[in-house]
Design a protein around this nucleic acid. Sequence first.
DNA 1: GGGGAATTCATGGGCGTCAATGGAATCTCA
DNA 2: TGAGATTCCATTGACGCCCATGAATTCCCC
Lengths: 164, 164
Amino acid sequence: MAGRMDEFVSTFTNRIDGKGRVSIPAPFREVLMRDGFPGLYCSPTLDQKAVDAGGNRFRDAIRQSLSQFDPFSEDYELLSTALMGESEILSIDKDGRTVFSDTIRARAGLTDLVTFVGQGFKFQIWEPSRFAAYREEATSRVRELRKRLGARGSAGVPSQGGGT
Amino acid sequence: MAGRMDEFVSTFTNRIDGKGRVSIPAPFREVLMRDGFPGLYCSPTLDQKAVDAGGNRFRDAIRQSLSQFDPFSEDYELLSTALMGESEILSIDKDGRTVFSDTIRARAGLTDLVTFVGQGFKFQIWEPSRFAAYREEATSRVRELRKRLGARGSAGVPSQGGGT
DNA sequence: GGGGAATTCATGGGCGTCAATGGAATCTCA
DNA sequence: TGAGATTCCATTGACGCCCATGAATTCCCC
């Protein structure tokens, strides 16, 4: 897989060892390195049992959305609690591994395997079987969406088979 | 945990010992150190049973928000009384611990555990179970807010499509 | 073109360091 | 002088760092 990428692409599944360590997929490490964030910024995926992660670019997106609120407004309180309070900054060791906190493990329902799903400026962390189910659903929904759009002759949704 | 951060992020819960001492989470100490404030600036959270805390940046934000009011207005009186009058500056010992005043303990309803919630330029001090409830509420309200704004971006970022 | 060497990565284990916590010792002010 | 507070140590458990293994891939040279 060619490097030189500044976005998280593709899906990888790695093992959590006895000490709780997981290797972050090398291509993702490359992106993070390039991004410059000294670690891994993690934030819960609001409507899925998963966790979003990334570097500066991801973090800035969150901060930016907060910045439009008055620092002492109730909205800021709520958002900063939900977004920053629930976020975590994980460190990445010299071997490219990290240790997920209990909170993150619980949130994503992780046991001994983790699936990393590239999503451009961020990636997601899933429990493998849960992700498989989600992907199934997503795929069928896209299929259905295409059918709807196709009926109107739209070129909006590109065709392509299921996936990995 | 990767340092080099200039904002309070994530949530930590520490124990108050028999003498009233609590360790301030190391990452937060790091931020305070960087901020330069010699201690911990504490001010009551206006609409919650909790306490806001931070360094220079936090204190400046309070002043800034006060400055938007006419210094002789009743609003100014009320706010400055609530924000500045009720503020306290706590010291941090060599081991990174502080001792909360009775006022603060009462205001947040603290007993033997404290939860520190990062919120960017400040963090909040909560009694753990009380925070758990608030977090629930915050999360669901953000979810609904996000739905209302119809924002895309599974980053959980409302508006501004935190995308590429 | 093929076989082997060198690389890249994921993974495991041992160990030193640091943070959180508890307790003792010292200090201070009424 | 005594209660509360501040500084100094000690313990323990978590985390970061280094090295080893092994599999899969790439590179290179004959």
